[in-house]
Design a protein around this nucleic acid. Structure first.
Lengths: 176, 176
DNA sequence: ATCGATTTATATCGGACCTATATAGGGCAA
DNA sequence: TTGCCCTATATAGGTCCGATATAAATCGAT
């Protein structure tokens, strides 16, 4: 989803600064499915303001640059709903890990084992974070997203652990 | 994974044109985890050639522009292995679908049901394609990638179907 | 008490990448 | 025979990310 729409979505829930829009995803366990960088959020917010889809108020602070707090306008809200009503872009899952495993025959077996171990450890961490989120009070949409992630990572880890065991078995056999 | 490394990987298996490099992923059921567009493949190939990591031979064809067939050089092969030996970029799964579901409370219930139905149908199609690939003879790396995808889509579809049933139940209740 | 690390906050530049488009001949189907 | 899809290369425009700069507050450790 384009950054403009992501910004509008967050502002649908509450007013926020550019910084808070980025944080909104990082902390909420949604970073596995949606994210945007500062380098695209700030320009998006400027354009959205020009187009009247959001409004800004500069909150002056002592000895700090102004915080620019953005709010969604009625026009912005309508544009956001319109964006969700038409055909969505397709999911894209890009995995350097799977790519590397494609060429496992070219790599030292120790590297393949490390690749698997690292990826499993990473996934377990993400799952733990998701599990913690799942135990909190959530809006229905968030509940869906967190449970979705939980399902995916659980299935992934099961699969990976089984393969990891296979590789270990083959390594032992080869050592005989 | 950056496009340069993706190109080197494909050329590790066989010589190919830019066009074939793109096709290699589309047909092999790997498009869910790795992809690159023509707009990035062609410039990548040019740079790789300049750097001596690949070589080109122009195959003249009757009444057609030359096909440029690329081959990986020993230096390219070494660079590819090096890329796979150091830390990999993290996976990124971007899902406009999950993003939209986050805001299901703002959408008409019929739209939410359509979102779920479309996504389930799409996933079933991808799973079917993966299942067909899984029945073919594959290299170990490909076997891993296809089975990985199979696992993920199966788990996803199970989850989605359960949620879809919940939504239907709620709609019936509300209609009473 | 103070030094360093982290957090809050905005912003820009360069580069990587994608989408759309142009070009062009071949084969195939209606 | 008209139109569409496939092979094939290439570029322009635009989106987005990663790195970097700046700056002050806060918090933990020594």
């Amino acid at each position: 989803m384009d950054v403009r729409t992501i910004c509008l979505g967050i502002l649908t829930r509450d007013d926020a600064t550019g910084y808070q829009i980025k944080k909104a995803f990082e902390d909420d366990g949604l970073q596995h499915f949606v994210e945007a960088s500062f380098g695209s959020i700030y320009p998006a917010l400027s354009r959205l303001t020009e187009e009247g889809l959001v409004s800004v108020r500069a909150e002056a602070q002592e000895k700090r640059p102004d915080r620019k707090v953005y709010s969604i306008t009625p026009a912005g809200r309508a544009a956001f709903i319109r964006a969700l009503m038409k055909a969505l872009p397709e999911d894209r899952h890009r995995s350097p890990f799977v790519f590397a495993m494609l060429f496992s025959d070219l790599l030292p077996p120790a590297r393949v084992r490390a690749l698997l171990d690292d990826y499993i450890a990473q996934s377990e961490q993400k799952l733990a974070h998701l599990q913690q989120k799942a135990s909190e009070k959530l809006m229905p949409g968030e509940r869906f997203a967190i449970d979705f992630g939980h399902t995916m990572y659980t299935a992934m880890i099961d699969f990976l652990r089984a393969r990891r065991a296979d590789v270990e078995g083959q390594a032992l056999q080869a050592a005989e």
